[in-house]
Amino acid sequence: MTVLPLSGVTVVTVEQAVAAPYATRQLADLGARVIKIERPGVGDFARHYDTTVHGQSSYFVWANRSKESVTLDLKTRAGRDVLEQLLGRADVFVQNLAPGAAARLDLDAASVARRHSSLILCTISGYGTTGPWADRKAYDLLVQCQTGLVSLTGTAEETARVGVSVADIAAGMYAYSGVLTALYTRATTGVARAVEVSLFEALAEWMGQPAYYTRHGGVQPPRMGTQHPTIAPYGAFTTGDGKQVLFSVQNEREWAALCERVLEKPELTDDPRFATGSDRVAHRGELDAIVAARFLRSGADELMELLEATGVANAGVNDVEEFLDHPVLAGRGRWREVAIPGAVVPALRPPADLTGVAPRMDPVPDVGEHTERVLTELGLSAARIEELRADGVI
């Protein structure tokens, strides 16, 4: 049996919501043992975002497979003592507690580092642990607004949020890669370096292109729905059977082929309004009218076949149900079954394939499912565990 890359690495995480759980789930995918500390009784509040997956939260099921759930009341001395024992055996400690909470519990990076010098510490915050907004709460949509992403998303008439938790996901990805880098650094130098990621700065990095465009162009890219603000033609158009097909022209060769074989107007290549990419953007309205009229003469399947044969990238505009049935996911064997409390559900394999390594895709835990087993591993007696339960610590 192949040994997973992070087998033997233990991660203890005091996490909730999406960013930290997504980061640690990816560590678990690679074989790390992830011990998730939750509140007694209720657990991670993301467990209660919805109940759509056989009574479980869609967010929680997505971000928490392959973990062990241990309930501890960290506001009690006994709960923090158990956590200290776990940290003494761990390689990585991740936390995304609310502003100020980690320091009040003596779990901020500086405090934990003094007690566990070889432990890799990962802190995920909203706006950073220092600076003028260190004490502000931050959730995904708030950060989408603060980075300007919402101002770029939607139509000319109305802004819109991105349809997934993009700030949380960005922060989770940087926390994941930061922890991997810190593990490599510790293995090669012996130094355990702390990792800090904020939702705001993670999404700020993803705003790099519009930031450059706005700073140096004097105006930000306009909101254009499914059209591209700086490339034309590039967007979705309605077909004769009422569906939508999106296509993209990236260079002059593709533009000439589109004019001749799809639009059936080869003379457009000599039209000064459309001579260059910048010209086509400047005359987008006239160009879009030509494309729209042509698309209404054919059905979606016919147009996509023609665009494909012409060498122009294209796709139908799927809804989520169509995405779930996508032939690429089925044809490449991306679906696996994962157990959740009371059921089994399909889940997508992690996107990064490592040759010869199958990702770990173990069950999503119930609240406190592994508490007794983990505490027994620490050497606590059955009587002591019952005392902690009676006192509400676990």
Rank of each mutant, 00 (worst) to 15 (best):
V34H: 07
G43N: 04
M361T: 00
P233K: 01
H283C: 01
G31M: 05
K137I: 10
V166Y: 02
D366Y: 01
L83C: 11
F295M: 14
A382Q: 09
S177D: 10
E196W: 03
S278E: 14
A170Y: 02
R136H: 15
V320H: 04
L107V: 12
V18D: 02
E205W: 12
E322R: 15
F237L: 03
A175P: 09
E286C: 10
A211I: 12
D108H: 06
F93A: 03
R349A: 11
P346V: 11
L83K: 13
T130P: 02
F237I: 05
Y174L: 15
G208P: 03
L303E: 06
L246H: 02
A182K: 04
V61Q: 05
R284S: 05
F237G: 03
G285C: 05
A110K: 13
D50E: 13
R114G: 02
G8A: 01
Q26S: 08
Q85T: 10
A90Y: 03
D106A: 14
M361D: 00
R89H: 06
S69F: 04
P233C: 01
V166M: 10
L329R: 04
G379W: 06
S7L: 03
T188K: 06
H228I: 04
V195C: 07
D301Y: 03
A256P: 00
R39G: 00
T153Q: 08
R65H: 15
L152Y: 10
G342F: 09
V11M: 03
D168G: 03
V53F: 08
V393Q: 07
A309Y: 07
R161G: 02
A204G: 12
Y127E: 00
G285S: 14
R114I: 00
A101R: 14
P341S: 10
I124A: 08
V320C: 03
P272R: 05
R384V: 13
R223E: 06
T76K: 13
D270A: 15
Q144L: 13
D168H: 05
I385L: 05
G316Q: 05
R384G: 03
G368Y: 00
P341F: 09
A160K: 14
D81A: 15
S381V: 08
K265F: 02
E158K: 14
P365W: 07
Y212T: 08
T230Q: 04
V11K: 01
A28T: 07
T159M: 15
